[in-house]
Amino acid sequence: MVERMSVEIERLYEVFGRVPRPLKVEGCAHCVAPDEDRPLLEGPVRGLSVDVLRRYATDALILWGDVPELRYFLPRLLELAADNEFDWPDPEIVFSKLGRGRWTEWDDDERAVISTFLTRWWETKAGDDCPWPDIGTVLCSLGLTGIGLVPFLDRWERLESTGAILNLHEFVTTGVTWRTTGPELRNPFWEKEVTGYRDIVAWLADGRALAAVEEAFLTETREEMLALLDETHSLLAG
């Protein structure tokens, strides 16, 4: 994945490379040792390993550091999380730091480069035959940044690739609980009050996803894809 997003990753490093290196990353006195930030501040941020960043990636903006430090480490955090390099924390936790840090209020160039990165990440995963992390994780990670997901769903509903069909089938069969009151998203990291959660539920429930599947039936000829579309359609139609 990194190779497919090399341009977007380089832009992250370029823009956030202007953020000065912190002199110290202060943490909760009861939770973070006085010198625990030392490995974080040794060498270039691009070279920080998963092992060095794991604790910070988990506790940033909660027990350790504030927004200035997050902005400094952000390119490496997003690069690793988008490729699911951490065994912990999960991508949802790392991407949620953007929402917690209110990134949509940052400088214009920072917002622009993050937005481009998120869009490209979605494009690479939604069309992938076997994305890792899975598409439900990607959707939740994007939603927890605080942005609306309608543009991402609009792109997905074109179902213009095998991967898009496979991922939609996977999502509606394993990522959604279909209740009489409407669909509920299963990923435990979701916060139901975020805009992205509401966007997905509405998309699944109001006929847009169903119409996309019906449109795909008109051009699809492969039996295995037609079978997946049929099962997807049955769930969406209720």
Rank of each mutant, 00 (worst) to 15 (best):
L98F: 05
L77S: 05
L80F: 03
L78R: 05
D107M: 15
R102N: 13
V94L: 04
S96V: 01
L77N: 04
E105G: 15
D83L: 06
T104L: 14
I93H: 08
D90G: 13
N84D: 11
L80P: 00
D90I: 08
E79C: 05
L98Y: 06
E92F: 04
V94D: 03
W106K: 09
W88I: 09
G99T: 11
W88H: 11
D108Q: 14
W106F: 08
F95R: 01
A82L: 00
D87K: 15
L78T: 00
I93V: 13
S96C: 02
G99W: 08
D83Q: 13
T104I: 11
D87P: 14
F86V: 02
L77A: 04
S96W: 03
S96L: 03
D109G: 09
P91M: 00
L78A: 06
F95P: 07
L78Q: 10
N84V: 00
L78M: 12
L98S: 05
E85H: 12
K97V: 08
R76D: 04
L80H: 11
L98C: 14
E92D: 09
E110H: 04
D87S: 15
D107A: 15
D83N: 13
E85Q: 13
D108F: 14
D87F: 13
A82R: 04
D109Y: 08
G101M: 06
G101I: 09
